[in-house]
Design a binder for these strands. Structure first.
Lengths: 137, 137
DNA sequence: TCCTAACTTGGACTTTGTCCAAGTCAACAC
DNA sequence: GTGTTGACTTGGACAAAGTCCAAGTTAGGA
């Protein structure tokens, strides 16, 4: 993730302690935190960080393509730092747990031209749903 | 949609004017309204209907499997009455327009057992994203 | 026609997210 | 180092989306 910070600096980002902390919190794989969770963890290291800054920073990371925004339920958006490796999400209908998964084939290929209605289609997001081992009956 | 009301009565639903109006508003294909839009249209016919009742009724219809809840963005949930015919959604990144689409093949089949992590996977929701003809450059 | 559990209502409240004026500070120039 | 400045941060107010509840109403069976 430290390369991320360097990359962002290369793009003209000002490297503040707040942005550093947000980037650190998002470090890793299989991370799918809500903005408030990011704020809570960031505040552990930098207690005076404000919600507005966390929202701003997450929005910038998404705009730069460094972080993915995922809407797996109708609740809070989640932020996925694993933006550079194509993947989809498997969500537990019981407890809400999320896993990154890698289906085979390109989901985009399954949509025939006749079903595109003149859209310039650029992406396909797949959410698989089911019960995780802990929630199975 | 009148069969819907009959079906629901068969399941022990009390058939109130509020529920009837919500079901009527949701009638049709290619309908993807937010709860507040449903409330606004319902209030045209039944001005005193409350938001709480609309939320309750939508929640019940979803629980009964008669209506699908779709989260195409991180904003308001949308309600799709076309629950009995398998389909996916194509969303315009510019204006938010939504179309029902029918990709070929079963998206569930693309997820190998090794990528299911012990989940009992039951559904796959695909959101295709792109620019609609009106929003294309 | 009456009764009652089920339904509806309005409003208070929570969660999630946005906006803004005022204050702060990273990075550059010197 | 020091100064400067525009970008960044802050807290609080606000907005949008959704939940909850006590009190009032009513569909449908007896």
């Amino acid at each position: 993730m430290s390369d991320l910070l360097e990359r962002l600096r290369g793009r003209g980002w000002r490297l503040t302690s707040q942005r550093r902390v947000v980037a650190e919190v998002l470090d890793g794989e299989h991370v799918h935190l809500t903005a408030d969770e990011v704020h809570a963890r960031a505040a552990d290291r930098l207690p005076e960080i404000s919600r507005a800054t966390v929202y701003n920073t997450l929005g910038e990371l998404v705009a730069l393509g460094e972080v993915l925004e995922v809407a797996t339920d109708g609740r809070a958006r989640r932020y996925d730092p694993n933006a550079h490796r194509a993947h989809q999400h498997l969500v537990c209908s019981g407890c809400g747990a999320i896993r990154d998964v890698h289906p085979h084939g390109d989901p985009l290929a399954a949509l025939p031209a006749a079903e595109r209605f003149g859209f310039a289609v650029t992406a396909a997001e797949v959410t698989y749903r089911g019960l995780c081992p802990d929630c199975r009956p």
